[in-house]
């Protein structure tokens, strides 16, 4: 075959493969080409179909799972960038005493409203980050400044939701077991506090906080189920214990909420 003939045959092969892939019978396609081409086309065209059998699509479950995993990594990467400057600062203050002083300074900066970057970075942090202490301090201040019991129930409800988001991030990014344990413990504490506070107010004749607390607890049920299923075998027991505790506390509230 000359180069020119070779080119012409290559084009014929391409055309014939495309027609057969579109559903045309091979014989009809072959009939449109010179006899010299027909034997070679009959040999090669069916191979296209055999290669096509290797095509496989990802399952929707896998796609969703990977998307969640990737987006958690995107969040981590974004946080990493944001905290970059702070970590460089942190390295300058490496000793424990200096670290405490840095945290205190950072808390002050947050409280006077000047540390928007710090506040945002701390809001996204998990217990394995030094910035998590900033978040804890801020939460403690918010709770302490709550003017009455009903407001405190609202603060606890917001903190329960926040702990839920943190747990989700910790599980999805494969954080070590101790991070999940700390978060589960902190969530259990908030649940305990909200229920006690709500029941106290209920006893004083105010039913609204108990209803609010019940909504906050029920909102945790499904995410907790999902996280328990997704968690690593080491992290799972803490989440299971938390689930049992959540159920118990919910029952305490259900008795009083009509």
């Amino acid at each position: 075959m000359t180069v020119e003939e070779d080119d012409r045959f290559a084009a014929a092969l391409e055309e014939c493969c495309r027609r057969v892939q579109r559903g045309e019978p091979l014989e009809r396609c072959l009939a449109d080409y010179p006899a010299a081409y027909q034997q070679e086309l009959a040999r090669l065209v069916p191979l296209a179909g055999r290669v096509g059998q290797l095509a496989r699509d990802p399952s929707p479950e896998f796609q969703a799972r990977l998307e969640r995993r990737l987006l958690a990594s995107v969040d981590e990467a974004r946080r990493g960038r944001r905290v970059g400057l702070l970590s460089r600062l942190g390295r300058l203050f490496a000793g424990p005493a200096m670290r405490t002083a840095t945290v205190a300074l950072v808390v002050m900066a947050v409280l006077v409203g000047g540390g928007v970057e710090v506040e945002q970075a701390a809001a996204d942090s998990l217990p394995d980050s030094p910035l998590y202490r900033v978040k804890e301090a801020r939460e403690w201040v918010t709770l302490t400044l709550a003017r009455d019991g009903e407001t405190r129930v609202g603060v606890h409800a917001a903190q329960i939701a926040q702990r839920g988001r943190e747990l989700e991030r910790a599980v999805q990014t494969g954080k070590p077991r101790r991070v999940v344990d700390v978060l589960a413990l902190r969530l259990a504490w908030s649940i305990d506090q909200i229920v006690d506070q709500a029941l106290e107010l209920q006893a004083q004749g105010n039913p609204r906080p108990a209803r609010r607390a019940l909504v906050a607890l029920r909102a945790m049920e499904r995410p907790l189920d999902r996280l328990t299923a997704q968690a690593s075998p080491e992290a799972r027991p803490a989440l299971e214990r938390l689930h049992t505790f959540l159920d118990e506390q919910e029952r305490r509230l259900t008795v009083v909420v009509v």
Binding site: A55, R56, D57, Q63, L66, L70, L71, V74, A77, R81
Partner: peptide, 23 residues
């Protein structure tokens, strides 16, 4: 590191990338 943008790119590319590897 815009979440939505990365999710859109991922959805655009996940099937071709998977097919490419699975073959």
């Amino acid at each position: 590191y815009d979440r939505t943008a990365f999710a859109d790119l991922y959805r655009l590319a996940v099937t071709p990338v998977y097919r490419y590897l699975a073959a």
